[in-house]
Amino acid sequence: MSGPVPDRDPGLQPERTRLAWRRTTLAFAVAAVLAGRQAVHQGLSPFGLVAVALCAVALLAFLAIAQARIIGLGSGRPAPLAVRTAVAAAVCVITLAAFGASVLA
């Protein structure tokens, strides 16, 4: 790319992208809490406990992905999102849907 690496993007694009990751993590937390509540409501069977644990793992994994990306966005000219990261984030979301569906009433 041409031009020097800016210290700060005047359009605050990395900042906006960081915040987008933050609010997506927040949305994930809300959905994960609802999924956990679902499993607890069925009575805590061993299967329900496993489902709750997997929802928690999905949330933690998404948190880790988001955190890594937020750190990656700290540079003046951040690298584009890796395909692997995008796929991993979507897999976390699909996992939540799948394990949530398995504990439906």
Binding site: R23, T24, A27, F28, V30, A31, L34, A35, R37, Q38, A89, A90, V93, L96, A97, G100, A101
Partner: peptide, 13 residues
């Protein structure tokens, strides 16, 4: 992804 999460959360709700 947030749209997806909203739909999933709606399903649980």
């Amino acid at each position: 992804l947030r749209t997806a999460l909203a739909l999933i959360g709606g399903g649980f709700a």
